Computed example of a mutant assay.
Amino acid sequence: MNNSDFDSYLTKVGLTSKPALTEEGLKALHNAQHRRIPFENFDIALGKSISLSDEDLINKLIHKERGGYCFELNGLLLKTLKATGFDTRALLGRVHLAGEPTGRSHQVSVVNLDEQLWIVDAGFGSHTPRSPLPLVTDKELSTDIQTFRFIETEQFGYMLQVKLPDDNEGLIWQSLYSLDMTNVYDADKSYGNFYVSNHPKSLFVTSRIAAFPIENGIVTIFNNTMKKVVNGITEEMVLEENESYLETLRTQFGIKLEASFSDLKPLVTD
């Protein structure tokens, strides 16, 4: 990332200067991007390929009113972390939300700061950590409205879990993704990115998805359902299959598609 692109990034996310190489600076950088650039997969819904080139990431996520998913959002964040001066590299994780683990299809960054490792993730949809998380095990880690923990497993390495309410009005630990800390190369990212954006059983191919954090909550879209959760209270509405759908993307998520509603691929139905 050159100086001009770095300055454009800071302007995009609302920062007036380069963050300090401290815990506070790391959190400020993550917070700025996470609260400004939404999670979304609408290029796939428009039948477009997902490019991870520097030029395309910067054009889409900085210069346009668009978002992306993990390979894009965390790809851009990794470049910015490096340009800021943080000691960082990419990791790929297996997603465990459905129980059966996926391949290594989720990209995050690990930052080494004062001999403490931090997992930095701005691209995991509705369960995106709202702050960088120190990589320590068996300890509750809180953001403003979330509680996480890492546990260490023999089979998968470090497992990130989030505390969620269950059907019996109790709380459970839901496994999100696992990290084995192995080196990641551009080819690994290309493999994962191609699978999740092209495989007919990939959630990103079969569904329309968006998530955007707000004060004390989050707004999400899954196909035709929009949910707004604030202070644990959920409001839900069904979106119509017309141009008003795109207006909702613009007003609620800051996503401006250069397309008409009819350009979106039809939703996959059983």
Rank of each mutant, 00 (worst) to 15 (best):
S109R: 07
V110S: 07
V111K: 05
N112P: 00
N112L: 12
D114S: 09
E115Y: 02
Q116M: 09
L117R: 06
W118A: 00
V120W: 10
D121Q: 05
F124H: 00
S126K: 10
S126C: 05
H127M: 15
T128M: 11
S131Q: 12
L133R: 04
L135E: 03
L135P: 04
V136K: 13
E140F: 11
L141Q: 08
L141A: 00
S142D: 14
D144F: 11
T147H: 03
T147E: 06
F148D: 07
R149F: 09
I151G: 04
E152N: 13
E154T: 12
G157P: 10
Y158V: 04
Y158Q: 05
K163P: 03
D166N: 15
N168Y: 14
E169G: 01
E169F: 15
E169T: 05
G170P: 04
W173H: 05
Q174G: 00
Q174Y: 04
S175E: 08
Y177L: 01
Y177E: 00
S178A: 12
L179R: 03
T182K: 14
N183H: 11
N183I: 06
N183W: 10
V184D: 02
Y191Q: 03
G192Q: 05
G192S: 04
F194K: 07
S197Q: 03
K201R: 13
S202A: 14
L203W: 09
F204G: 04
V205C: 01
S207F: 03
R208N: 05
R208T: 01
A211H: 10
E215C: 04
V219G: 10
K227C: 04
K227V: 03
K227T: 08
V229H: 02
G232R: 06
G232C: 04
T234I: 10
E235Y: 08
E236W: 05
E236A: 04
M237Y: 09
E240S: 12
